[in-house]
Amino acid sequence: MAIAERPAQRGTAPQPGAGSGSDGAPLEFHVFKGIPGEEQGEVTYRVPPVTGMVVLDAIHWIQKHVDTDLACRWNCKAAKCGSCSAEINGMPRLMCKTRIDDLPDGPITVRPMTAFPLIKDLVTDVSHAYEVNRRIPQFTPAADEPSPFVIQEMDLERIYEFRKCIECFLCQDVCHVLRSHDLQEQFYGPRFFVRVASLEMHPKDTVDRLEAVRTEGGLGYCNITKCCTEVCPEHIHITDNAIIPLKERVADRHWDPLRAVSRLLLGKR
């Protein structure tokens, strides 16, 4: 690959061993490089360790001193913008939140998210996620709802958690329905179940999204393996607090004859 022929420019770089790595030795990174339709592969870089270093620091060091054209999306470096999602040692994580000293000894692999189309190196095209987002009806209060809203604390408690989402799409990346079975067209994915749940549980919202989330959203494809919850950097309980409550609401409507009789007799939805 042409990229491997470039000389490393290490004139101003911190020297290997200057930091407090376990033995001061350079860290070995295997970073994916390539663009669609051309040769792709992992390139090995040796990066000097620095105390408190995160993976994004190493990527920046590589960009500055070795490979200036290594593509990587990032913005805040504070685990709040959700831009630097990647797969570190095979596990979806934010590069800015993954400390080197939390990783096991040995080479560190950095690859782009698998569930999204590759653009270049570590950058993927997440536009499909925004298209899914546009399909979900937005918050719609009653036309005669007085403004500003007066809402009890207990009515909003559940949806505070959902508002922590930074849209890093790690949950979409790790979800096996999207990642392994490529059901992008039939399945919203965890991030958007969180969004639907936050709207469905809102005390002032009036739109019914349950039928859409069951049919075009493919809620039934989720088999509760909870990987989305495991990778969420905001520690949102995606499965327990968003997906399972949605599944239970769908069960109310489609799998519960007692509720059906109740609806018939009482005329409630």
């Binding site: 990229i3 000389p7 295997h30 390539g34 339709g37 792709q40 592969g41 992992e42 090995t44």
Partner: peptide
């Protein structure tokens, strides 16, 4: 300082 550790099949622009 940089070496190719492995390579794989190229992906077309539309591949996931």
């Amino acid at each position: 300082g940089a070496e190719v550790a492995g390579s794989g099949k190229g992906a077309s622009a539309g591949d996931a």
